[in-house]
Simulated scan of single mutants.
Amino acid sequence: LVSGLRHNFQEICAERLKEVGLSQGLVYFVLYVGAHEGCTQTEMNNALRVDVGYSTRSVSKLVEAGVIERAPNPADGRSNLLHLTQKGKEVSAFVEELVTEWDEEALSCLDPAEKSQLVDLLGRVVFSMGAQREYGN
């Protein structure tokens, strides 16, 4: 069931993201930087659990598209701090709206108590899976 929801979300994203010139794979980087302005790429890689090569290529595409900018890290000359540009902030707001619209549509068949219960249960599943990965179980 979760895979079916993910597939539906991917289809909608693939179509709607064309409006802002992004692929779905780049969205997570935009959302992360928007929520963690001034983060390093290493911090982002760890949080999103992506490898350095994939992240470097993705951030470079976003820099070229004018969505993200790199700034020297005054605390560590070997790294950069990531920030959204004005265009990036607009893209981030567009994506957040897209996610909210999809959530509302997907959950429209549930009453408020059922939505709350579903969010709680899914949160527990996500936490459980994250904890398993952290401890190698």
Rank of each mutant, 00 (worst) to 15 (best):
D111V: 08
N45V: 06
M44N: 01
L22F: 02
H83D: 04
Y54C: 10
E90M: 12
Q10T: 12
T42I: 10
P72M: 08
V67F: 03
E97F: 05
G77R: 13
L118F: 09
A131C: 06
K87T: 11
G123I: 04
C39Y: 04
S79L: 08
L121A: 15
S79K: 12
Q86R: 14
H83M: 04
S55A: 15
L82N: 02
V126L: 12
V2Q: 09
Q132P: 01
A113W: 08
Q10F: 07
R16E: 13
M129P: 01
E69Q: 13
V119K: 14
E90Q: 13
Q41E: 15
R78H: 10
R49S: 15
L82Q: 01
E19A: 09
R70F: 06
Q24C: 10
G4S: 09
K89R: 15
V59P: 02
P74R: 05
A65C: 06
R57D: 07
E90F: 05
V99D: 05
G25K: 08
R57L: 10
L84K: 04
S108Y: 00
L84C: 05
D51A: 02
A75T: 09
N73A: 06
L118P: 04
R49F: 13
S55I: 13
Y54T: 15
R124P: 00
V95I: 14
G88C: 01
Q117D: 14
V99S: 05
L118G: 06
R78A: 11
V50T: 12
P74I: 09
S58V: 06
C13P: 01
A131W: 11
A35K: 12
L98D: 02
K18T: 06
R78W: 05
H7Q: 14
K87V: 06
V63M: 00
N8H: 12
S79M: 07
E37V: 02
G38A: 07
A35R: 08
N46Y: 11
P72A: 12
G53T: 15
D120Q: 15
N45P: 03
Q132L: 10
S58Y: 02
Q117H: 14
V99H: 00
G21F: 05
G130W: 10
A131N: 09
K89G: 08
Y135T: 13
G38V: 08
V63N: 06
Y28R: 10
Y28V: 14
L48F: 06
V91G: 05
L62S: 01
V20C: 05
K61Q: 11
E19T: 14
G88P: 02
G53L: 15
G21Y: 05
R124L: 13
K87P: 01
A35W: 00
V91R: 03
I68K: 00
G38S: 09
Q10E: 09
E69W: 05
L98W: 00
I12C: 08
G88E: 07
D120S: 15
Y54L: 14
Q24T: 13
E11V: 08
D76W: 03
E134L: 14
A71H: 13
E64F: 03
G136M: 07
R133M: 12
G66K: 00
A65Y: 07
L48H: 01
I12H: 09
G88T: 07
V91P: 00
K61G: 02
E114I: 00
V2P: 04
Y54P: 03
Y135Q: 12
